[in-house]
Amino acid sequence: MKPAPVAYRRPESLDEALADLAELGDRARPLAGGQSLVPLLALRLAQPEVLVGLERVAELRGADLDGDRLEIRAMTREAELERSAALPPLLGAALGHVGHFQIRSRGTVGGSLAHMDPAAEWPALALLLDATLTVASARRGRRRLPAASFILGPLTTALEPDELLEAVTMARPDGRFGFAEVERRSGDFALVGAGCHRGRVVVFAAGPRPQRLPGVEAFLRDGGAPGPELQRRAHAEIEARDDLHASAAYRRQVGARLVDQVVAAAS
């Protein structure tokens, strides 16, 4: 389990990083905190010719958590967010489920979003909070994508090979919320998880990508409350997959129960 030979570039600015990606295209992979990419390199499941290390790109660091609109730049580490007194409780609750604290020391918000593991918390949060993702490339400049357009499927996003995720922005989540996961062990990827905030409901780790439940949201708008009917609607709506750890049937049942829990917590 040792990475294959690879070259390394260490751009000092965003322009330099984008120029590297424009030049190299899909021969390169940007490297953020490495908590997902380095194991794939070690298993030789990813074998880029060049890694573009982003650790020196100042424009990608830091987060503005104080205003009504939050901006988290891509290389912000999860551990930095956890230490911030301004971190909204919803993000804090979700962060507690991201691996173990040693992973959060290195793991970045942008890295997680760009990697798009279906069971990861950040894509689910982005969808739940209707976040906007700012994406930059040397040739085409910037584009801003709603989370729903950025997230395409397992390990797949709208990012082109020459693009970098620059930042994620969202309205400050305030008020009541619910966020819950069932995991086999503390710190594991969820078997299934759910979140609810301001009438939006998201299930994740169940299917190929985090999923909003419009039927459940409509039910809530119409005055529906937690209970068997809400669970029935959630159960019918959740897209679920089988894997080694749980069946689709398990994920639908438990997902529907978690939806019930998070809706209750948020209302």
């Binding site: 069932v182 086999r184 078997l191 750890h245 749980a246 069946s247 049937a249 398990y250 049942q253 438990v254």
Partner: peptide, 11 residues
């Protein structure tokens, strides 16, 4: 006796 097996047995 995993969550999946317990779920399946109950079902």
């Amino acid at each position: 006796y995993s969550p999946q097996r317990i779920f399946a047995a109950v079902e």
